[in-house]
Design a protein around this nucleic acid. Structure first.
Length: 485
RNA sequence: GGCGCCGUAGCCAAGUGGUAAGGCCGCAGACUGCAAAUCUGCUAUUCAUCGGUUCGAUUCCGAUCGGCGCCUCCA
């Protein structure tokens, strides 16, 4: 597995699936747009972060080193709105910053907890920069743009001159003629040269935290942070930049304008965008009552990892309609793989005797599955097809193991494949079976009752364990397997 | 007005110019003290509709119907 597998991804820039060839061989620089931390993430947000995690893990599994940067947006209109309402009118700038930080710290923490719960540990990120830590870099970038005639100041705010960049619109594939310009123009952006121009730096308003700048006190516009942080961390070129589909325009388009306007060269090779999640056929909204956070799913008794599987069993570029029935189905599907894993971890001495006409070399089956799995993943992360390869192997080897027990070596080979795929999907790890002494004692008691053919007692213990969330399965060889409900 | 996506069995879903992967649910049988797990079998002559191209289309082209997204903050 040391050689690099080529991976192809749909590129929003060209609207085609194209092979990814990293700038530095074997190393992928990946910048993904992170959360704006003013509230809990909802499951739609999480779909995007799960897609990005899968993207990263696919490259890692394919042998690449991935340097992954995800920004935390900790200064923005809604953050300011929510963090400043308790403050007195005469609060100092210092106090305003503190209030903003208190809010963003809290929700950043909650965000990391949610990520960890769905199998995305923060250790997996090489960089997790906060926007507020990069104000000097943003100012300097804006100055560069101004020096190149791409930015202009109006009353303490600075705007990007879209007319100065001929290829503006290349990502969203918008031409300026066809654009129906928005009617809701922000009142304080009345002074722009063109309605398409966007703000790089916003002059401060009363009641807002601000930073000093060459244009007076203010705060950064939304798009500038990603350009500034990405180029500070990765330099003027980047392999992959990803985010939710809704960020294509204007956010990513404007990022391109800022970065390429400043450097004069192509910035990002591959733009990758994940589709939306719908709930009950509609976009999530609080008024429709279909707005869920991960915490809501947990309260309804679902494991966050089940949610992860439900998301990743669908293709990332397809609209996905979330439902609780779908979650239940995901749980059942995951159980099938997990049960199979436990079976492979065991010795298989309960298998039947004799030959089987369909018997194939399990080694060959695993190799075939591995090939199919990677072929699917390498083709624009075709997860439904990749999972199909796993399920086909599960069925084939279950059937074979029923008749001719796989050897220890063959089982280990299968387990290695399950580890390899689990490194991407995070759904079927080694069981951490630390049964409490109590549960273990109950299983022993039931064994004794069964040996004595005391079925009533045996069933009572099995039901008791079931009520504790432990489901038993008696195997042919007399051993007892179990899983969590 | 401009740009774009989608419509495959009860549900989710892959896919290809050559005759429909996989998962969930369901049914029948085997195994089991009974279950669970597993196994065996069954479950789309058909891929929204109508035309066209083709020896042949679910796959290409056109039209129609239906669902949706972006062009404004948004994962």
């Amino acid at each position: 597995m040391t050689s690099l597998r080529p991976i192809a991804l749909f590129n929003t820039l060209t609207r085609r699936v194209e092979p990814v060839s990293p700038i530095e061989p074997g190393v992928i620089s990946l910048y993904t747009c992170g959360p704006t931390v003013y509230n809990f993430a909802h499951i739609g947000n999480l779909r995007t972060f799960l897609f990005q995690d899968l993207l990263k893990r696919t490259f890692q599994g394919a042998g690449y080193e991935v340097r992954h940067c995800m920004n935390i947006t900790d200064v923005e209109d809604k953050i300011i709105r929510d963090s400043q309402k308790e403050l007195a009118e005469g609060a100092s700038n210092e106090e305003r910053h503190q209030a903003m930080k208190a809010l963003t710290d809290r929700f950043t923490q909650a965000f990391f907890e949610d990520l960890a719960a769905v199998g995305i540990p923060t250790e997996g990120f090489a960089y997790l920069p906060r926007a507020t830590a990069y104000i000097p870099q943003m100012i300097s970038l804006i100055q560069t743009l101004a020096a190149r005639g791409l930015a202009y100041e109006r009353e303490g705010s600075v705007y990007y001159r879209v007319a100065g960049l001929p290829h503006y619109g290349c990502l969203a594939h918008l031409d300026r003629e066809g654009m129906q310009l928005g009617t809701s123009v922000d009142a304080d952006e009345y002074d722009r040269e063109s309605i398409s121009d966007f703000v790089l730096w916003k002059a401060t308003k009363p009641g807002e935290p601000c930073w000093e700048s060459p244009w007076g006190p203010g705060r950064p516009g939304w798009h500038i942070e990603c350009s500034a942080m990405s180029m500070d961390i990765f330099g003027p070129r980047l392999d992959i930049h990803s985010g939710g589909i809704d960020l294509v325009f204007p956010h990513h388009e404007n990022e391109i304008a800022q970065s390429e306007g400043a450097t004069g060269e192509k910035w990002v090779n591959h733009w990758v965008h994940g589709e939306f999640l719908l709930v009950e056929g509609e976009k999530m909204s609080k008024s429709l009552g279909n707005f869920y956070t991960l915490r809501d799913l947990v309260e309804k008794g679902f494991d966050p990892i089940t949610f992860r599987y439900a998301i990743q069993s669908n293709h990332y570029r397809k609209l996905l309609n979330f439902s609780f029935d779908g979650l239940k189905a995901a749980k059942n599907a995951l159980d099938r793989i997990r049960t199979f894993r436990k079976r492979m971890e065991g010795e298989g001495n309960g298998a039947g005797e004799g030959t089987w006409k369909e018997a194939l070399d399990p080694v060959a089956r695993v190799e075939k599955a591995r090939q199919a799995f990677w072929e699917a993943m390498a083709d624009d992360l075709n997860t439904p097809e990749a999972l199909a390869a796993i399920f086909t192997l599960v069925s084939d080897l279950n059937a074979q193991d029923d008749r001719i027990a796989l050897t220890r070596e063959e089982r280990d080979l299968v387990l290695a494949f399950l580890d390899e795929t689990n490194a991407l999907f995070r759904g079927w790890p080694h069981a951490e079976d630390n049964l409490d002494a109590e549960v273990e004692a109950l299983i022993e008691q039931r064994k004794a009752a069964k040996a004595a053919k005391n079925w009533a007692e045996s069933d009572r213990i099995r039901d008791l364990l079931k009520s504790m969330g432990i489901l038993l399965e008696d195997r042919k060889d007399g051993t007892v397997g179990w899983k969590r409900a």
